[in-house]
Structure formats: C-alpha cells, structure tokens
Amino acid sequence: MNQSILEVKGLKTSFFTDDGEVPAVDGVDFSVGEGEILGIVGESGCGKSVTSLSIMGLLPSPPGKIVGGSISFKGEDISHAKESRMRKLRGNDIAMIFQEPMTSLNPVFTIGDQLMEAIRLHNRLPKKELAARAAELLKMVGLPRAKELLKEYPHELSGGMRQRVMIAMAMSCNPKVLIADEPTTALDVTIQAQILDLMLKLNRETHTAIILITHDLGVVAQVCKRVVVMYAGKVVEEGDVKDIFNHPKHPYTEGLIRSIPDLHSKKDKLYTIKGSVPRPGSIEKGCLFAPRCEYVMDKCRTDSPELVGDSHKSRCFLHQVQE
C-alpha cells in the first residue's frame, strides 16, 4: 500500500435535532492510499453519505456537526478547517460526484459554461484555453462530439452522459481524492458498467484515489481493492475485497453477500437480512447488529465489540472468540 493520502480517525458526526443528538457517524476509521480505490458499503442510513459530506466539509450545518475524531488530508487535519481553506481544497484536492446526475447540473447553463466555471474556480486561464480544456475533459470522460456538447444544455443529455459530465467537472482540477457517492445508483445497468470502467480508467491514468460509496456489492467487487463495510454509523468490517467476499467475518457482511440474487438457485424468495438499520442512538448497549444477527450470543447484547484484526478487521465477538 502506498502512503495514505486521506485518513479518517474516530470520526463522529452528529445531527442535533429537536429530539436531541443523533449520532449518524459514530467513530469511523479508514484510510485511503494514493491512487487507491476504496469501497464503502452499507445499507441506506448507515452513515456512508454523512461520512463523505463530513470529509468535504459540506454537512448541512445546523443540524449536522463533526463532534469528534479527525480527517487528515496529506497530514493536515481538515475536520474543523475554515470555510476558506475548505473551498481551496474542494475541487482542487478533493472532489465529489453525486448520486443524481439528472439534478446535479444547473438547468439554465450550458455544459460548457459549467465546466469552464469549474476549471476557472481554481485556474485562471484565458477563455480560449478554458474552452479547449473543457473539450479535452469531455473527451477524457469518453463523450463524443465534445465541441458541440459544450454548447448544449443539461436537459439535452441522457443520465449517463450527465454523470460523465459531472465526473469531468470533478476531475477538472486533477483532485487527489475523488469521492463518488453512489455514482451509478440512478443509472441503467449497462451505463453503470461504463461509468465504473471510466472511473477505473481515470484512476489508472491520473492516479486519483477514489472513495466509492455504494450499497451495491457487485459494484465493489468490480472496482475496488479494499472495502469498508459500515453499519449504523460504525465500520463493522474492513479488508481486501477478495477476503471479504470469500470469508466474510461479520454476520452483516455475510448477510449482504447472501442478499445478492443468484441466477442459478431456484428459490421462491430472495434472502434478506431481517429488520432494518436501527435509528442512530436507539441502541444503547451491546452490538448494534445484535437484534438482527443470526449468531447472536448473550455477550452481544451487553458489550460492544471492537474493530480488531490486521489486514482484515471485523467488529464481531464471533471471530474474536475463535482467534
């Protein structure tokens, strides 16, 4: 593994609502190496997006607030950095793409306007060079007829094309880290594969590290080397993709893998993990997954397990007893 470029340590992000503090992210640790692709997987509401917004410093505040831990980018703690510092980092060093390509572009401006604006934010270039660079970016993300596209409006593009434009925008200043928050969820399966290929290609060519946030294990298997599984605001398992798929240690990961529909098995019902992610803060002691776990033990209901292991870590007593 290369030197880590982004390191998240014990990150705690809470939302302060009328009902009190709701810890959406509760002590998350992970790190991303230079040029690495890290997957973050979990169900809806497990804190994936809040983690990424915390890194970007884009939490809706109030009510969201980072209450603990650190986020260090190249050794600099940015968890409480000033807005002016974050603005320099965003786009330039850390960029993000979002789930909904249909609404991520401003409907009243052309693709060219928006791309050139993105470039100009961090590099003051003359107009001609801006246009050339914008066209170059569109080519880089595999969009044909770049010159004409620059003059078109977002509504004239398909979802896949728009997501490519969003990626071009995010890549416009060669960020060191690209956070992709469910970049393929809103797209057709065929387009999904193309977008993932594109991200792999960009990763190889520009050496940009990618944090891929998704709920789709298939996507993770296809793209990532290392994966972090999150559950209810905590990391429950972390390790190499192959290890995790072949030998999941945490019952939750196991459940997630079993939930992938298998074409060859003829079952009437697909496997699901019973229950749903608990509301943050609703479980006060014990393992957060205990109420849904098939292997639950007495100990699980009283003590909370720690994340242990070397390269393949998990937060489960099951394996800690065995080891």
Partner: peptide
C-alpha cells in the same frame, strides 16, 4: 443538488448566488 455539486468543486457563496441561484 447542483448547488451541492457547485460547492463540492469549491465554489463560494457569492458565485453560487450569482451563477446558480439568481439565474434560476
């Protein structure tokens, strides 16, 4: 979402207001 996207590439408040919010 495009406001969030604009912020994610480092756009400041003034620019967001003039480039995104007013025209819309």
């Amino acid at each position: 979402e495009y406001i969030m996207a604009a912020r994610s590439i480092g756009m400041g408040n003034t620019r967001i207001i003039f480039n995104h919010i007013l025209p819309n």
